[in-house]
């Protein structure tokens, strides 16, 4: 790749990571005032805030690389669904508390392995964002791990809800370890991460936690993909209807 291509690819990569963060942050923010008790309501808002913070850092970097006067908000608020590049697992609805915590467990374990690799990036901005995010993710995983135990090994009802959530989310985890040519080339160039290499460690850790929580690790017999090419579930369009409403109704305003 020439230098120019590398810059464009890095911009695309930062945008994708921003999309992952904003979409998951939005889903988590839907819990505010809906949590199972006040302390947990506050904690979920906290995790949502961490993801919104990441989205802002990734998008700001993408805007800087684009160098055309765009801002973080142009990325979040003016693109349509097909232009979003987030992995599908992030856009699925918030579901019940079990569904949210299982998704969080899968994503938190992924980030526990992914972010330390991104922190080694030769791109100092991406490395810096990853450094900051690692600390947050450690706390997120402590929470999702504890919740997996409490709900998996709590009551019969909570166990069933957890197992159901695991089954319905499992097929969306495979995409976390994919790489299209752009991500593969960035990883080769020392900027990105070879995600496929992270799966064994992810699977081992997730399996250990689920087993400890008396839950069953599903078979790898289905996978849904498409986020990185903008082929989304129906959920994302509805999310963007909410998120982008003011920008659509009052175009060109500053808020």
């Amino acid at each position: 790749m020439s230098d120019f291509d590398l810059k464009a690819a890095t911009q695309e990569y930062a945008t994708r990571l921003g999309d992952d963060s904003v979409v998951l942050g939005h889903r988590l923010s839907e819990w505010t005032s809906n949590g199972p008790f006040l302390e947990e309501d506050i904690a979920l808002s906290n995790v949502a805030l961490d993801y919104i913070g990441r989205a802002r850092m990734y998008y700001t970097y993408a805007a800087e690389l684009a160098g055309n006067g765009k801002t973080e908000d142009d990325f979040a608020y003016t693109r349509d669904m097909r232009e979003f590049r987030n992995l599908l697992i992030h856009e699925l609805p918030r579901g019940d508390f079990a569904y949210t915590m299982v998704r969080q467990l899968f994503v938190d374990v992924f980030n526990t392995h992914y972010l330390p690799e991104l922190a080694k990036s030769t791109d100092s901005t991406l490395a810096g964002i990853a450094q900051k995010a690692i600390k947050e993710t450690r706390y997120h995983l402590r929470r999702s791990h504890e919740w997996a135990l409490r709900l998996g090994d709590g009551t019969e009802a909570s166990h069933q809800r957890m197992q159901r959530a695991i089954e319905s989310l499992w097929g969306y985890t495979h995409e976390l370890f994919d790489a299209d040519p752009l991500e593969a080339q960035l990883a080769d160039a020392g900027i990105g991460v070879h995600n496929a290499a992270l799966r064994p460690a992810w699977l081992e850790q997730v399996s250990a936690i689920l087993t400890e929580a008396t839950l069953t690790v599903p078979k790898d017999d289905w996978a849904v993909r498409g986020g990185r090419v903008g082929y989304h579930t129906e959920n994302l369009g509805h999310m963007l209807n909410d998120m982008q409403f003011l920008h659509r109704a009052y175009p060109g305003c500053q808020w």
């Binding site: 802002r56 979040a76 999310m239």
Partner: peptide
């Protein structure tokens, strides 16, 4: 209005405000 806040900064500010109220 958390899910409809018109900028990422406003969204973060509103989320943390509502969180403070819970606190």
């Amino acid at each position: 209005w958390i899910t409809r806040a018109p900028s990422l900064r406003r969204k973060a500010v509103l989320l943390s405000k509502v969180q403070d109220e819970g606190g």
